[in-house]
Amino acid sequence: MITIAGLFTFDNFRYLFIGLMYTLSVSMISTIFSFIIGSIFGIIVYEKIPYFSKFVSISVDIIRNLPLLLIIFFVYFALPKIGIHFSIFWSSVVAFTFFEATMISEIVRSGINAVDIGQFEGARANGMNNIQTMIFVVLPQAYKKMIPPLVSQFISLVKDTSLATGIVLPELMYRGQIIYGQNSNYMVPVFVILAIIYFLVNFGLSRLSKIIERKMA
């Protein structure tokens, strides 16, 4: 047990903390982008525009059913071959954004579906066009219903950022590996520490979403 004392240094914790910041910033930036793109996809699919909606919904289905690691590798290793270069950080953001956007588009589509048809008809009969009806009446109600699934999506994203270890994004998981790489005795305690950090962050988020939900009810 003596041999792990060297693990608990300020530097190691600072090193992990910066990893956590990477994890959270990639998650947050991807979530914001994917929320916007996912909403647009979801609305397009919902609106059943000839051909276009079908095209988007098939694309969404394809991406949703690919392994996330494949998408990450594709963005980082394959896109440069056709002349599109992103840094490690932005490759991660792009990959997570696209993957998450497909998930969120499903959440948005079913959120809109859960709004009573009478809300649409009330607005349409009141003179509002399709877009006005969506923006002022339907989406505010749909997003409210979508808070719990959106937060759980964000939580899985925080966990999934660990996959970016594969392209050496210096996030939490990667930094854990670097630390126990120096001394294999550190392996078990490092995993425990990582587990605790992931748990605290995600548990905190899910509590937060419950509070928001209760406030808005």
Partner: peptide
């Protein structure tokens, strides 16, 4: 139009 089930904007 006035509907049987009102259809007021719930939000």
């Amino acid at each position: 139009m006035v509907f049987q089930h009102f259809n007021l904007y719930d939000n």
